[in-house]
Amino acid sequence: MIFPGATVRVTNVDDTYYRFEGLVQRVSDGKAAVLFENGNWDKLVTFRLSELEAVK
């Protein structure tokens, strides 16, 4: 189960963010908004829950 605050990895091989890890900001309607941070940039991207896996 994916909840806000969880760290997730993108599993969709066709996505630009494949294998990126980010922090879930919100979850609704089968989608999750994931925040990616890297140095001087932040990006908030929405994914279907089926495209994400929780990082242990």
Rank of each mutant, 00 (worst) to 15 (best):
P4I: 10
T16A: 14
L23V: 15
D29A: 09
M1S: 12
Y17H: 08
G39W: 08
N40W: 08
G30K: 05
Y18E: 01
E53C: 08
V45F: 06
L35D: 02
L52H: 00
F47H: 02
L44R: 04
K31R: 11
L23R: 12
Y18F: 09
I2Q: 01
V8E: 00
N38T: 11
N38E: 10
T7G: 03
K31D: 06
D14M: 12
D14L: 13
N12F: 04
N38A: 11
T7H: 10
E53F: 06
F47V: 04
T11H: 04
M1K: 11
R26G: 09
V34H: 01
T16W: 10
W41A: 10
T7Y: 13
T11I: 14
T11E: 03
E37I: 14
R9F: 05
N40V: 11
R26K: 11
L49S: 03
V45P: 06
T16L: 13
A54I: 15
D42K: 15
R26Q: 12
L52G: 00
G22Y: 03
G22P: 00
D14W: 11
I2D: 01
V34S: 03
T11L: 08
L49Q: 04
V13L: 07
F20Q: 12
N12I: 06
L44P: 06
T46R: 05
R48M: 13
T7Q: 08
V34L: 03
K56V: 14
F36D: 00
A32S: 02
L49R: 02
T16K: 14
P4M: 07
N40Y: 09
S28I: 10
F47Y: 14
W41S: 10
V24Y: 01
F47T: 01
E37G: 12
D15K: 05
Y17I: 02
G5P: 01
R48Q: 13
V45W: 04
S28P: 01
N38M: 14
V45A: 05
E21Y: 11
V27N: 02
A32I: 06
R19Y: 07
N40I: 10
G22H: 01
V24E: 00
R9T: 06
F20C: 14
L23Y: 08
P4R: 08
V27F: 04
T16R: 14
A6D: 13
N12W: 04
D42M: 15
G5Q: 03
T7M: 13
S28T: 10
R9D: 01
F47R: 04
E37R: 15
P4Q: 07
S50F: 09
G30E: 06
L35N: 04
L35W: 11
V13W: 06
R19C: 11
K56Y: 14
E21V: 15
G30L: 05
Y17R: 05
S28Q: 11
E51V: 05
D15Y: 05
W41C: 15
A33H: 11
E21A: 07
W41M: 11
V55W: 05
M1A: 12
T46D: 08
V34K: 00
M1P: 12
